[in-house]
């Protein structure tokens, strides 16, 4: 009932269904609950259509949810809208939501002004933001004339210019080159470190998420299928996947023995780099693996734990969710 005051964002039981005539309804967000503590960067991941944008827009009141509780910095997002909105800013889907016909500075003044930020204090802060984003020399350039990357930086800067404790960034690095993406990430990390901001960032770019986020929330089909520290998610997969490199090809018999014991093992034995890739269910399995290898008369060159990245973890989780959904 009471709004949570100790977290930047608390969502409980949020759900949203889209109904269109002549079409089956789409459950975009299916009763999700999530909390984000102050001063954290949280990644919001999920395949296309998972419900990320819908979730963000419901929190911002740009879409009317069918139900659920949302509190922003302790204020009920619907019943205390003004108080909640003065504490949150958002960049929605890329670089679209700024004025291309206005200059960078004019955009900053405009969007900050919507939240009552301006004057001399504001100007000082905008200047600082331009520096962080490497846009000082673009201050008076019309946004239209900027590169895609700079447009996106301006959009993010406009959201940050509102000086709100909570900021949503929906795919801020979409279509950016490596260098620009890096700069943007660095700027975001700095904002969190120096100003204690709380940032929720949705992205399809796992490298970005792995780089800036401590914690990720993964959505699929409108549900949260994983919500954990990036480290834990990686660890989850690190303990399981092993790559056994072989010095020479396995015999047919050897292959059969392995396949029998580890049905999901992927055996590569086409002459070059013969290997066996296995997912182990628990820690004890490694002994069994060695035993089976000996039985199969395998000539082991090395055993390595596959270094999982977030992308692999993500794909794996989503695949499982799909399988469950269908089964």
């Amino acid at each position: 009932m009471g709004a949570r005051t100790d977290v930047a964002l608390a969502v409980a039981g949020l759900h949203k269904k889209f109904t269109k005539r002549h079409k089956p309804p789409v459950v975009a967000v299916d009763h999700i609950s999530v909390e984000v503590a102050y001063g954290k960067i949280v990644g919001l991941l999920g395949p296309n259509g998972a419900g990320k944008t819908t979730t963000i827009k419901c929190i911002l009141g740009l879409m009317e949810p069918d139900g659920g509780e949302i509190s922003v910095c302790g204020y009920d997002a619907r019943r205390q809208r003004a108080a909640a909105m003065s504490r949150v800013a958002a960049v929605l889907e890329g670089a679209r939501n700024i004025y291309w016909r206005l200059s960078v500075w004019e955009n900053l003044e405009y969007f900050a002004g919507l939240n009552g930020i301006g004057g001399r204090d504001g100007a000082l802060y905008f200047q600082q933001l331009l520096q962080r984003f490497g846009l000082e020399d673009k201050k008076d350039t019309t946004v239209l004339e900027l590169s895609q990357g700079n447009k996106q930086k301006v959009a993010v800067a406009c959201a940050l210019a509102k000086r709100t404790p909570l900021v949503f960034l929906d795919e801020p690095t979409l279509g950016l080159d490596v260098e620009t993406s890096y700069q943007l990430r660095q700027a975001i990390k700095d904002m969190v470190r120096d100003e204690g901001r709380t940032i929720v960032i949705s992205s399809h770019d796992m490298a970005v998420v792995q780089d800036v986020c401590e914690r990720v929330v993964i959505m699929a089909n409108g549900r949260i299928i994983a919500d954990d520290q990036v480290q834990n998610l990686l660890a989850l997969f690190r303990t399981r996947e092993y790559l056994v490199k072989l010095a020479r090809d396995l015999t047919r018999e050897g292959q059969e023995i392995i396949q029998e014991q580890f049905p999901q093992a992927v055996i590569t034995s086409d002459g070059h780099d013969p290997s066996v890739r296995v997912q182990l269910i628990n820690g004890q399995d490694i002994y069994r693996l060695i035993d089976v290898m000996r039985q199969a008369n395998a000539d082991i060159a090395s055993i390595t734990q596959e270094e999982p990245d977030l992308e692999k973890a993500f794909v794996e989780l989503v695949r499982k969710e799909r399988a469950n959904g269908n089964g």
Partner: peptide, 14 residues
């Protein structure tokens, strides 16, 4: 179309 309407809706002033 530009997405700025949503931003206008985000102002705490209404």
């Amino acid at each position: 179309q530009m997405g700025t309407l949503e931003q206008m809706y985000l102002t705490p002033a209404g």
